[in-house]
């Protein structure tokens, strides 16, 4: 895929609006995490990964697992924009009989490589895929949340991937610093971040680690490409992001908008 900064900046701004529109239309949802993951996800899809919208199951496509499945509206908006399915489907997201389930379903939605929703499983699935595809020029990308990394299974996987030195596997962490409730509101003396010192943790398990600004398209693009070039071991890209990125209302109230609803007035004001 070719990377064009101007184009991707424009697309991301456009899809932010799509995300908010789709979520508001269908009664609310995970605004915060979808908006924090969008920039890194769109850079992956439009600037780095090998994908084939006209043939979603193309054997030589890169595998992309959105392990933080609750942010799937961001992925759906990108997939629709790329032509995997019609953009009109977005208005039905999460509704009965829509193929855009509330959490990703590989057996329903074109372009979804694996189902998710129950946190912590995507990286293990990615290990299986990366091992299965080790002799092919195919990269496996797993996008996780920082809150998700509290699941023990994540660290089982981090340990195992290091043992097998899977250089065709990259974990991208949307490190937006919040989870649904977490410890953000606790008083001093308690660590607030979902995973404090997350880069050190991945590094101590033997992974290549990059910690970057998850909203700087150039830097994301560079990091994703670099992750593919490592000859030895798996790579974690810790993307520091802002929950609800792009809208003050969401950014200032990340707990309400982890999964929430907008009033009609808020929605109108947001679009003006």
């Amino acid at each position: 895929m070719s990377f064009n900064l101007e184009e991707i900046t424009h697309d991301a701004a456009r899809l932010r609006k799509e995300i908010v529109k789709a979520l508001h239309t269908t009664g609310g949802g995970h605004y915060g995490g979808a908006l924090s993951v969008l920039d890194l996800l769109i850079t992956l899809y439009k600037g780095v990964a090998n994908i084939y919208p006209e043939e979603p199951n193309h054997p030589m496509r890169d595998r992309i697992i959105l392990s933080k499945g609750h942010a799937c509206i961001a992925q759906y908006c990108i997939l629709a924009d790329l032509g995997f399915f019609d953009v009109s489907e977005l208005a039905k997201y999460g509704s009965f009989n829509s193929f855009l389930e509330g959490h990703p379903d590989m057996n329903k939605t074109p372009g979804i490589d694996f189902s998710s929703g129950s946190l912590g499983q995507g990286l293990s699935v990615g290990i299986g895929m990366a091992m299965a595809l080790k002799n092919k020029p195919v990269h496996t990308w797993v996008i996780m949340g920082d809150g998700e990394c509290q699941e023990g299974q994540v660290w089982e996987s981090v340990m195992l991937a290091d043992r097998y030195k899977l250089n065709n596997l990259t974990a991208i962490v949307d490190n937006n610093n919040y989870q649904e409730l977490g410890w953000a509101q606790n008083s001093e003396g308690i660590e607030k971040a979902p995973i404090p010192r997350i880069s050190e943790k991945f590094a101590s398990f033997g992974w290549n680690v990059m910690e970057i600004d998850g909203h700087d398209f150039n830097i994301i693009h560079k990091a994703l490409n670099k992750a593919k070039e490592f000859k030895y071991g798996s790579t974690a890209i810790i993307c520091n992001t802002v929950k609800g990125k792009g809208y003050e209302l969401f950014e200032n109230d990340p707990i309400r908008f982890h999964c929430g609803e907008l009033t009609e007035l808020e929605y109108v004001l947001l679009n003006n």
Partner: peptide
């Protein structure tokens, strides 16, 4: 690490 193992199998 049974949890990782089962999900890995699904990936395969």
């Amino acid at each position: 690490a049974e949890q990782c193992m089962v999900s890995m199998a699904a990936g395969f």
